[in-house]
């Protein structure tokens, strides 16, 4: 049997893994973004000790290697009597870890906004939360789109680490097929192709945000020219 034929015969397993990867990635990226939005709001407008504590947790999280964090949640916590199944541990790891990175991106971008806009929002009767949601956050997303997109792709790739805590996602599926028939090159090429495909979709989405930003004069290029 041809090596590619073996892969074709196991397509359900590989596509099943791919589907798991997409679910892990999609849910985690969205949840991480929402969580990071709240984190940034807490850092910027929370009461004194609270904002600083949140900031500390975010910084601590960013300094952690993702793999060790996933290990810790899945293999480490049971020794404290906390037990998650592999998927739950995977979701928690992806969401909280990438929320920390998203938050850092949004926080840094917020520092570049003029304070006058927020004042104008307050003067026009916005509550803190509504000002954030309607005036600040949309601009953060538009201005930081390329960097956020980059982080989203890292989030996609980090799902691969979850194969090590027994989540049956794309990398795990490819790995299983290749070790059974010893066709590592072909199996991993297929996996890489699927990761690429997804990344390109993400890039296309980011490019659209970039166009929107440019139309509003918020893009990098225009901003650079105007200075």
């Amino acid at each position: 049997m041809n090596k590619w034929e073996i892969l074709w015969n196991h397509r359900e397993m590989i596509l099943g893994g791919f589907k798991s990867t997409l679910v892990l990635f999609g849910v985690s990226a969205i949840a991480a973004f929402l969580l990071s939005s709240l984190i940034v709001l807490a850092i910027r407008t929370g009461r004194a000790p609270f904002g600083r504590v949140v900031r500390g947790v975010v910084d601590g999280m960013r300094m952690l290697p993702f793999l060790i964090y996933a290990y810790l949640l899945y293999y480490g916590l049971p020794s404290l009597g906390i037990r998650f199944d592999a998927w739950t541990a995977g979701f928690i790891a992806l969401i909280t870890y990438h929320a920390a990175y998203f938050a850092e991106i949004l926080r840094g971008t917020w520092a570049t906004l003029s304070t006058g806009q927020a004042e104008a929002a307050r003067a026009h009767g916005f509550t803190t939360f509504m000002m954030y949601r309607r005036i600040i956050l949309p601009q953060l997303v538009l201005r930081a789109a390329p960097v956020l997109g980059n982080q989203v792709i890292i989030c996609l790739k980090d799902t691969a680490f979850l194969s090590i805590i027994t989540v049956r996602e794309l990398t795990a599926a490819a790995s299983a097929v290749q070790s059974q028939y010893f066709i590592p090159f072909e199996a991993f090429i297929v996996a890489i192709g699927l990761y690429w495909l997804t990344s390109m979709l993400i890039e296309a989405l980011v490019a659209r945000l970039g166009f929107a930003a440019e139309r509003k004069g918020l893009g990098y290029k225009l901003a650079a020219v105007r200075r």
């Binding site: 006058g116 104008a120 929002a121 003067a123 509504m130 949309p138 601009q139 918020l218």
Partner: peptide, 24 residues
């Protein structure tokens, strides 16, 4: 509270030296 203050501010217009329009 934030909400009540916002309601009062909604009744007071303000025009700024540096415009402070919302660029997006």
């Amino acid at each position: 509270p934030d909400r009540e203050l916002a309601r009062m501010r909604a009744r007071i217009g303000m025009v700024f030296q540096s415009f402070n329009l919302w660029p997006h």
